[in-house]
Design a binder for these strands. Structure first.
Lengths: 147, 147
DNA sequence: GTGAAAAGTGGGTAATTGTGGGGAATATTT
DNA sequence: AAATATTCCCCACAATTACCCACTTTTCAC
């Protein structure tokens, strides 16, 4: 399970050096074979390959006759790219994904359980600020849940 | 299962170079024999031939006494064309289909499980943006589903 | 503090992939 | 039958990517 975040830079070729704290786990769990895809909130999701596969399967098994579902399938599956870590523990982020998430240089990588998330630094700050007032409009799932 | 997308150009003759990452799979699964057809969302669908056949069978087995069904049959089956990859891994897109999907030069090809989708670049961006507010009106199928 | 190891950074080169077009062969139209 | 357009097969150039090596900075042990 991934957690914690780091601020780091993409290099001039659009490569991302995976922080050492995640690297070992990734090598063990999937030999550096990852899937990167787009998230509706305009960040990128990074999964070990075998974590991703059931998700894609599930997604594509949904009915095609609902516009929201189709849009979700197209986004998540359509953007999902296989990538592999190079000898130095880096991955090359495909241009389409970099564009989608507005990543240029300064990014934040954050562990989120079974996946990592990749944010443009600016967007990450806004996102952090957005939690705001937790009191209102919390979904009912959270009834009785305490931190 | 296909996934991931590329931005590429049709050449002046209306040919599409299938990206290398899909090419091998297509050669293995159907020796480059494909079926291209129209999608209600004004993109094109590209199936390996043996993936398409059961879909067409299923479609034509539906009752003809429903206007929506008839429209769907006419679109999908009526536009379906056989195409083959040439030596360089390219397919020639029939003019009718190119017109239907509004493809001129800049297109996006996206893997969607058992098929590929072909979009005019502009339309693809709009489509990506459409996921928008995930919170509202998600189909009940997605209850309890998490990424 | 000093040295050794690990992590982060940058770039060169070769191979693969994407793109464009020439021209022969085939089909379509007049 | 001639003229026109379409499709196919080929080659050539351009762009991108994979793979490798080298250097700098940080971290940690002693």
């Amino acid at each position: 399970m991934f957690h914690g975040s780091s601020r780091l830079n993409l290099d001039s070729k659009g490569r991302l050096a995976i922080p050492a704290k995640y690297r070992d786990e990734l090598v063990v769990s999937c030999e550096g074979r990852l899937v990167v895809t787009a998230d509706p909130d305009h960040c990128l999701l990074v999964y070990p390959r075998q974590e991703w596969e059931p998700i894609q399967k599930k997604l594509m098994s949904l009915s095609s006759f609902n516009a929201k579902t189709r849009a979700l399938q197209r986004l998540l599956v359509g953007y999902a790219e296989d990538v592999e870590m190079d000898g130095a523990g880096r991955i090359l982020l495909p241009g389409t994904l970099r564009t989608y998430a507005g990543l240029d240089k300064s990014v934040v990588i954050a562990g989120q359980g079974n996946r990592l998330e990749l944010w443009d630094e600016e967007k990450w700050s806004q996102q952090s600020a957005m939690v705001g007032s937790l009191e209102e409009d919390m979904p009912s799932e959270l009834e009785g849940f305490s931190l």
